[in-house]
């Protein structure tokens, strides 16, 4: 389990991570989502022991991370721009990590390279961005660590590769309790892989919950109400995150339990009322819209 308690980090006057507390349970895919500059990379770099927190703590299985090689053997960190040695090949990088990580599986590396159709002796500086991302995932999986931190790793992968990686993750999670932590702002990708999400915004944590629970807590309601309906009364009944109207149809994003929402709207005798599932992207926009990060500001 990875635990962050009151974690803070500043770069000069800029507060990159501000008093973040969250728990990443074992055996579940944790998605770290957030706006640009939310602090995702900074959080992961602290979790990887690259940066030292200014305040608070971050532990892996109860052990501190910073400058603790024993703890760091438990995870593999893939940064947003992974560094490969100049003029090196995948085989050379594999040989390097094999010396560093005690459980590194060379056979698995070879198998994965074959599955991904990457040449082990080809110079990495001739790889495309997507191929480099694939390679970094292969090296990470071959390290056979308990955790893997992926900072915007999926962004450069094509859809087929993404699916392939997802299935590999699922398989490792089932077999050895592998726990990937994936930071991304590509929510559509994360939606069908993540079990738990942590939403960061301007350095702070907005939510950290199981995805199902998040989805259970926010709903999208389409409804058509009679003309004489007191809309203010309607609004007072619910915790409305987002309200939209197209013609006669209202669309509300409401926080609450589905049954209760339906019960309350029925009290207003709607002409039409329907609950729709929210995508992770819609949840993200709704939650950050509450804090003022409003998409309407960017749309004229």
């Amino acid at each position: 389990m990875i635990e962050a308690k009151s974690l803070s980090k500043s770069f000069g006057k800029i507060k990159a991570v501000d008093d973040v507390t969250l728990t990443i349970a074992d055996g579940r895919v944790f998605g770290l989502i957030g706006t640009n500059g939310a602090g995702k990379s900074t959080f992961l770099r602290m979790a990887a022991g690259v940066l030292k927190p200014d305040k608070g703590s971050i532990t892996v299985d109860g052990n501190p991370v910073f400058e603790e090689p024993d703890t760091k053997e438990e995870f593999f960190y893939i940064s947003d721009e992974m560094y490969f040695f100049p003029n090196s090949t995948p085989d050379a990088m594999s040989a390097f990590f094999e010396k560093i990580y005690p459980h590194y599986d060379k056979e698995r590396y070879k198998k994965l390279m074959n599955d991904f159709s990457l040449a082990g002796r080809r110079k990495i500086n001739t790889f495309s961005k997507g191929m480099k991302k694939q390679l970094s995932i292969i090296l990470g999986l071959s390290a056979m660590t308990k955790y893997m931190y992926c900072d915007e790793t999926f962004d450069g992968l094509d859809p087929v590769m993404r699916q392939g990686v997802k299935s590999l993750f699922a398989s490792d999670m089932a077999e050895r309790g592998f726990t990937p932590v994936i930071a991304s702002h590509n929510l559509r990708e994360l939606e069908d892989i993540c079990d738990t999400v942590g939403l960061l915004h301007q350095g702070g944590i907005l939510l950290s919950e199981d995805l199902d629970e998040v989805k259970a807590d926010i709903h999208k309601l389409h409804c058509v109400l009679p003309k004489e309906t007191d809309m203010d009364a309607v609004r007072r009944c619910f915790e409305i995150l987002v309200e939209d109207k197209k013609g006669s149809v209202y669309t509300f994003t409401i926080r609450g339990v589905e049954e209760e929402i339906m019960k309350k709207i029925n009290d207003f005798e709607p002409l039409f009322a329907e609950m729709l599932p929210l995508s992770l992207e819609e949840i993200f926009i709704s939650e950050t819209g509450v804090t003022g990060y409003d998409i309407k500001k960017f749309i004229s």
Partner: peptide
């Protein structure tokens, strides 16, 4: 180099 320090300091090596 930021990318180099990310690699080296992320390793289980002091």
């Amino acid at each position: 180099s930021r990318t180099k320090t990310d690699l080296y300091y992320g390793l289980p090596v002091k």
